[in-house]
């Protein structure tokens, strides 16, 4: 009866916990505060509230009840209800306060920092962050393409381009319409125009462009075209390092 709900909860928990080390620290912090915290309000919030929330969100009955309100793909957001960071930090400070010697306090503090660092994963990596030379914080070449399209003196602009570029166009210029929208879970199987684009099937691309009133194609130079687009009424009006911009004549 609840097998689907249990699966959703399990998948969500596995996604959220990562290596599980921070969760372990969280449970340790809760245990420590349960045993040592004298302030009842603090204890109620960090220990009992945390436990109650865990019981609730890991409960398949709760998942069943909130199914209509909470998308199953994002059930992991319920774990944001846990005051994880605050509880771990509070417990850490409580441990330090329990040490009387000043030097030992510092050593304890550094040890706790070391435990946290070795349990987690630093967010500041070259993979996660880039220095981009524009205030939009979007890939430079995409901005170049979008600006060239924006400057075109056309009443109607509907663009076919790559899946990678699609999320950024309307963030810069909302007057540009798109042949297809971004699918958050990568499900593009309904869009045959993408298949034709990725295989360079010029005839099929231009046929669909005509049917869907697409008058601009931003073509990836890395994909060889079966025939030139200019044979089908498109004119090459601009290009960037990796893209050619064709406009229907």
């Amino acid at each position: 009866m609840f097998s689907d709900n249990i699966k959703i909860i399990q998948d969500s928990f596995l996604k959220y916990k990562g290596t599980g080390m921070y969760m372990a620290l969280f449970f340790l912090a809760i245990l420590y505060l349960f045993l040592t915290e004298k302030n009842k309000s603090q204890k109620m919030f960090m220990v009992y509230f945390s436990c109650l929330i865990m019981v609730v969100i890991l409960n398949p009955l709760f998942n069943k009840c909130v199914d209509s309100l909470l998308n199953k793909n994002v059930y992991w957001r319920n774990f944001w209800l846990l005051p994880m960071g605050i509880t771990i930090a509070y417990a850490g400070v409580s441990v330090i306060k329990g040490v009387s010697n000043k030097n030992q306090k510092m050593i304890t503090f550094l040890l706790i920092l070391l435990i946290i660092v070795s349990s987690g994963k630093c967010i500041y990596t070259a993979e996660n962050y880039q220095k981009i030379g524009n205030a939009f914080k979007l890939p430079e070449e995409y901005i170049e393409v979008i600006n060239k399209i924006s400057e075109m003196n056309l009443e109607h602009k509907k663009v076919l381009t790559t899946i990678e570029m699609i999320p950024y166009i309307r963030q810069i210029d909302a007057k540009i319409e798109l042949a297809f929208e971004r699918r958050p879970f990568g499900d593009y199987k309904d869009y045959e125009i993408i298949d034709y684009y990725n295989t360079g099937s010029t005839h099929s691309i231009t046929n669909l462009c005509q049917q869907q009133n697409i008058n601009i194609i931003v073509y990836d130079k890395a994909i060889p075209l079966q025939e030139p687009l200019i044979n089908y009424g498109f004119k090459l009006t601009a290009q960037t390092e990796h893209y050619e911009i064709y406009v229907m004549e």
């Binding site: 959220y16 080390m21 921070y22 960071g85 605050i86 771990i88 946290i116 987690g120 994963k121 967010i123």
Partner: peptide, 14 residues
């Protein structure tokens, strides 16, 4: 502690 928890909190993107 909270800052360090956040900066090293990328054990999961969720």
């Amino acid at each position: 502690l909270l800052s360090v928890i956040y900066i090293w909190g990328n054990f999961s993107i969720y």
